[in-house]
Amino acid sequence: MTRKGRRLALIGSSLAVVAVALGLVLFAMRSNVTYFFSPAEIVEKNVAPGTRLRVGGLVKEGSVKKESGQKVVFAVTDTTRDIAVTYVGLLPDLFREGQGVVVEGVLDSHERFSATTVLAKHDETYMPREVADSLKKQGHWQGEAKAGAEAGSAPKK
């Protein structure tokens, strides 16, 4: 093979790999990323049922019900709106009423959500940042300890 041919082979294969990688990334970006919303944003942005997404907020006080098998139903609230979440499986260690939570799954309607994953905070100094942000945005951020107590009460405007 001539020197020119070798150089062409090198450049050609580099371009091919780059093109394939770029194509894969662009393709995967279209359908395999999950958006994060608070219950209020779901209504605000009119998210279509059947969409895969992450919803974050606080577990509403008094809303956790364990049903048959390992099915759990609870409400996630951002204090303006709630969404009812169904989940089958073991809840994380730090899942508690009044605490921050992020659920990932499929939106059934603007009021109902089927979760496949439930994420709670790792320890008491950590809250999913998305939850902290959405609480801050609505003026309900009072530090970790109080955030839970706030959630049950009516939103103050």
Binding site: V17, V20, A21, L24, V25, F27, A28, M29, N32, V33, T34, Y35, F36, F37, R54, E104, E130
Partner: peptide, 18 residues
């Protein structure tokens, strides 16, 4: 300001074929 999460499906689809 938009929040997305890129998880296993994305990486399986891009990292795997490479």
């Amino acid at each position: 300001g938009e929040k997305i999460s890129v998880g296993a499906p994305f990486f399986n689809l891009t990292f795997g074929p490479l």
